[in-house]
């Protein structure tokens, strides 16, 4: 799955702040991770933990009042070759990469589609912009093929439809079609099915799995849904309050979670195939990131917190070659 562990993206020590009236939101606080070619890597965590900001930072999509303060995003365009630091590129250079080599699928398909143009035109336009086709007309023919590849029902008709004429699931198929039209190397899917119904979500996830296999895509999947994580990912990073607290191979994480937050989170998710007598809950709430707790950001809610946890940031501890955790219990 991990095609000999060749990295495609290496995020190093990323820091992102938002300068709001209420104060400086320390949204991303030293996040590092590597995505390997051909894998599905997952960022999971609760509202506001920094998943979307991380995803957007990869191609500098952070707009004021946000600012990337520090860090590198190394992009290995060709396997084994020297990487480029995306954060060092100009907006013009990034625009060429975005949508062509690295593309996004966001939660709300309506927001990604232009209500004034039909689907065929929108697919063609993306391809035209990146020089894959010589005319919009040529694009229309390709667009039908693309809609077929995302299993859009009745693609010859749908290609002429406007967004409002499509159901939620069809819109998301169209968005996926657009984002795959340039054969990207990395697809960043930020909660791609959160707005959809269960049976439609399942269809879209099946589609992503199928396309991934066919096109040897690398996927960064962002979700708060532990079920989707279990179903889709090869490796997963658990985020809490702007930091990655644990990262592991998917089977390892569910079998042997180490971080107290991960453990608690897994016990708080009601499992539909098991009879559960009592769910475990985590006391308290997610902290305000203008005044994040010092030391380990989870310490005010952690039942194992020690003195050290309240003042010193826990280091990244590799407990095996595929499993790291940031918690003083393991040092």
């Amino acid at each position: 799955m991990k095609s000999e562990h060749l990295p495609i993206i290496e995020v190093k020590d990323l820091y992102v702040n938002f300068y709001t009236y209420a104060g400086v939101v320390k949204a991303i606080d030293g996040v590092s991770f590597t995505i390997y070619r051909g894998e599905t890597y997952c960022l999971v965590g609760e509202t506001g933990c920094g998943k979307s900001v991380t995803a957007k930072s990869l191609t500098k999509l952070i707009r004021p009042p946000g600012r990337i303060e520090k860090g590198q995003v190394l992009y290995y365009r060709e396997p084994g070759k020297e990487p480029i630091d995306l954060l060092g590129l100009s907006e013009e250079e990034l625009r060429r990469i975005r949508g062509a080599e690295i593309s996004y699928i966001f939660q709300d398909p309506s927001a990604s589609l232009d209500p004034l143009y039909n689907i065929g035109y929108q697919i063609s336009e993306t391809m035209y912009d990146h020089g894959l086709i010589s005319s919009i007309k040529e694009g229309f023919l390709k667009a039908v093929d693309i809609l077929k590849s995302v299993l859009m029902p009745d693609p010859e008709t749908r290609v002429k439809n406007y967004p409002h004429e499509l159901s939620g699931g069809m819109k998301q198929r169209a968005v996926i079609g657009i984002s795959l039209s340039n054969n990207p190397r990395l697809v960043i899917a930020d909660e791609p099915t959160t707005a959809l119904d269960a049976t439609v979500q399942d269809q879209i996830m099946d589609l992503l799995k199928k396309l991934k296999k066919e096109k040897n895509l690398t996927v960064l999947l962002i979700t708060h849904n532990m079920g989707l994580v279990a179903d889709m990912c090869d490796r997963v990073a658990v985020m809490y309050a702007g930091r990655i607290v644990e990262e592991a191979d998917i089977y390892e994480l569910f079998k042997n979670p180490l971080h107290p937050y991960t453990k608690a989170l897994l016990k708080a998710v009601p499992n539909p195939v098991k009879k559960i007598d009592k769910l475990e809950s985590i006391p308290g709430t997610v902290p305000n990131l203008i005044y994040p707790p010092p030391g380990c950001r989870f310490h005010p809610r952690c039942q194992y917190a020690m003195e050290k946890c309240k003042s010193e940031r826990p280091p990244e501890i590799w407990v095996s070659s595929t499993h790291r955790v940031s918690c003083w219990l393991y040092s």
């Binding site: 532990m226 279990a230 179903d231 539909p272």
Partner: peptide
């Protein structure tokens, strides 16, 4: 259609 929070299952 509901993904189960357990990769094995």
């Amino acid at each position: 259609a509901i993904p189960i929070p357990d990769p094995e299952i």
